[in-house]
Amino acid sequence: MESTLLARDLRKVIGPRTIVDGVSLDIPAGEVFGFLGPNGAGKTTTIRMLVGLIKPTSGTVTICGYDLHRDFENAMRQIGCIVETPDLYRFMNGRENLEHFARMLGVGAAEIDRVAALVGLSHRLDQRVGTYSLGMRQRLGIAQALLGRPKLLILDEPANGLDPAGIREIRELLRSLAAEGMSVFVSSHLLAEVQLMCDRVAIIHKGRVLKEGSVDEMLAKDQTLEEMFIEITGGETVD
């Protein structure tokens, strides 16, 4: 079966520094994939290469069979994403923001109502985004990412700013989307959350993927994800 996301040997070198050093990823349809790593490990740079914001020094990204570099428009049509913080236009309301991105995709008002209902934001759409809490902006960001029914959802720290009930709601939403065949790529530092949500995880440290496997496999060794994470990264954090 064709992979939804296939990254081969991604490298990013800036000046003398190698920020990402040979990361390969393969995510099949319907999988929730967790991407873990301490700050400064190369998580965000990898995500930015996956969505075309940064050009890799070498390596390729293929999304549903489309090469990201050579066939940008078809490849990006399969992706919805939030990179780092869910920054939307604060001077417009939620609906205008969704309309803005819907116009870029060529989808209509029915699709806006659908995604707003999915993230539970229908009743707040006509308020200015500047008045939203971080949790609401996170939901609006996810709604924006879901426009046009992408095959791959890439979310950077989606739990940020959400309260426990909100986190649970989003987790259930992502699981149900995966059950319909969407692949979800989630980066997070909340290990317990990843344990609950993901099928498979990869741990990145100093630009390399040090460990990859299914959550069940990793937990079989009678170790929590947290213990394993500390063991692999040496408890090191770089801020």
Binding site: L53, F72, I82, V83, D87, M104
Partner: peptide, 14 residues
């Protein structure tokens, strides 16, 4: 400055 370029440039538009 507002961070919205991350969304604007990750849509299927060159």
């Amino acid at each position: 400055a507002e961070g919205t370029d991350k969304l604007l440039l990750t849509r299927p538009v060159r």
